[in-house]
């Protein structure tokens, strides 16, 4: 991703009085792609009743700059992205050192984890239909 351009756009939202409403990451299929898989991140900004997003597609190898210089509240989202998606978010204002959550499945939204879950679902469905039959 274009780090400078991205931060400039975020900064513009900040100067224009928008607030950070959400930062959301999504595991982009196909989940069986060879690692590093692709993730899509949306930075959602709201101003009064408007809502706009910045979109970036990244892999775990990419460096995702933190926006906490502009929006202090971003640290929770960013720590979460790092822990749940395994994204390399750098420069987080309040770095919780991987201790925000503690999960049984490490990086539960990684491509591998999603793939495993989908496989389990498919297996369960098959088993259920097998039983029915």
């Amino acid at each position: 991703m274009d780090r400078q351009g991205f931060l400039a756009r975020v900064g513009e939202y900040h100067t224009n009085g928008w607030r950070l409403a959400i930062i959301n990451a999504t595991t982009v299929p196909p989940v069986d792609a060879a690692e590093p898989g692709i993730f899509e991140i949306s930075w959602g900004f709201a101003k009064d009743l408007e809502f706009e997003t910045i979109r970036e597609q990244v892999t775990t190898a990419d460096e995702v700059p933190s926006v906490s210089d502009f929006f202090g509240a971003a640290f929770l989202y960013e720590n979460e992205m790092r822990e749940l998606f395994g994204l390399n978010v750098t420069g987080i204002g309040l770095d919780l050192g991987g201790q925000l959550y503690k999960t049984s499945v490490k990086i539960p939204f990684s491509h591998a984890a999603v793939k495993a879950r989908l496989a389990a679902t498919a297996a369960a469905t098959a088993a259920a239909s097998g039983k029915k039959a």
Binding site: L100, K102, L118, T121
Partner: peptide, 16 residues
């Protein structure tokens, strides 16, 4: 602060 004691991971349940 620390949270995460209630984290269930329900968003990922869309896969299940």
């Amino acid at each position: 602060p620390t949270i995460g004691y209630i984290h269930r991971g329900l968003e990922a349940m869309v896969d299940r």
